[in-house]
Amino acid sequence: MKTSLEYSSALAIARRVIQANGSAVTAAETALGPAFVQVCRELADGSGKVLVTGSGTSGAVAMRAAHLLSVAGTPAFYLSPADGLHGGLGVLRAEDTVIAISKGGSSAELNEFCKRARTLSRCLIVVTATADSELASLADYLLPLKLPADADLGAIIATGSSLAAAALLDAITDVTRVMRGYGWDQVLYTHPAGAVGRDGVCLAPAADDE
């Protein structure tokens, strides 16, 4: 049944969601530490590809992360657990790295994928909000997110939790880019299209922070 909302009530709901999302993104900092830096070093030093995976909303975050890693000089691609278990795992080689994203870490399909992917690759990196999950136990490198209780809509829809995971992967992307010595000139060379290619020369920083 549809519900009629007063103007003030509609805005109150919207503000609550935006504030919860903001708090969740800030909470991504809880995953920063020695393991985070080691993950970035592994990605920067690796000679293979990075396979990023996840199911549902985490899959959308994984797809985005794979694209941004590639843009920033770390060869990456997305593969869903379902496609992986239907033969896609054959893409992995010993020099490759796998990143798995899951809030709860209890997806049977994702966990089975990661069990097999771990034996075919260099290492498994897990981003999750559930550090005692089965998925977390499979990780070579675990990046646990400690999220506010109200991070997600109704504690069901992965709103804030997915934004927190995306923020953490963004941080990994840029730290790894700097570790690789992949400058903005190289980013612009492989991203010549759109507004980035048109305006990027003027907008790119002169140098990276160290």
Results as ranks from 00 to 15, higher is better:
3 T>P: 04
4 S>N: 10
6 E>H: 13
7 Y>T: 14
9 S>P: 01
11 L>W: 11
12 A>E: 15
15 R>H: 14
16 R>D: 15
17 V>I: 15
19 Q>F: 11
20 A>C: 10
23 S>L: 13
23 S>F: 02
23 S>E: 15
24 A>E: 08
25 V>M: 09
27 A>G: 07
30 T>D: 01
30 T>E: 01
33 G>V: 07
36 F>Q: 04
36 F>V: 02
37 V>H: 09
38 Q>C: 01
40 C>G: 01
43 L>H: 04
43 L>A: 00
46 G>N: 13
47 S>Q: 14
47 S>D: 10
48 G>A: 01
49 K>L: 14
50 V>G: 00
51 L>S: 02
52 V>W: 07
52 V>S: 01
55 S>E: 10
55 S>D: 03
56 G>Q: 10
57 T>R: 14
61 V>C: 03
65 A>C: 11
67 H>D: 02
69 L>C: 05
72 A>F: 15
73 G>C: 05
75 P>F: 03
75 P>Q: 03
78 Y>R: 04
82 A>C: 03
83 D>T: 12
84 G>R: 06
84 G>Q: 09
85 L>T: 12
87 G>D: 07
89 L>A: 03
89 L>T: 04
92 L>I: 11
93 R>G: 13
94 A>I: 05
96 D>H: 12
97 T>A: 02
97 T>L: 14
98 V>L: 06
99 I>M: 06
101 I>A: 00
103 K>W: 03
105 G>Y: 02
106 S>V: 10
106 S>F: 00
107 S>Q: 05
108 A>F: 04
109 E>C: 07
112 E>H: 12
115 K>F: 02
116 R>N: 13
117 A>Q: 10
117 A>D: 11
118 R>N: 04
119 T>K: 14
122 R>A: 02
123 C>A: 11
123 C>E: 13
125 I>G: 00
129 A>C: 13
131 A>S: 15
134 E>H: 11
134 E>M: 08
137 S>V: 05
145 L>I: 09
151 A>N: 03
155 A>Y: 06
156 I>F: 11
158 A>M: 07
162 S>F: 08
165 A>W: 08
165 A>I: 06
165 A>L: 07
166 A>Q: 14
172 I>T: 06
177 R>P: 02
179 M>R: 14
182 Y>G: 05
182 Y>W: 15
184 W>I: 04
184 W>D: 13
187 V>K: 03
187 V>T: 07
189 Y>N: 07
189 Y>K: 14
189 Y>W: 05
192 P>N: 00
193 A>E: 12
194 G>M: 06
194 G>E: 03
194 G>P: 06
195 A>K: 12
197 G>I: 11
198 R>Y: 08
201 V>L: 12
206 A>G: 03
208 D>Y: 03
209 D>F: 14
210 E>G: 10
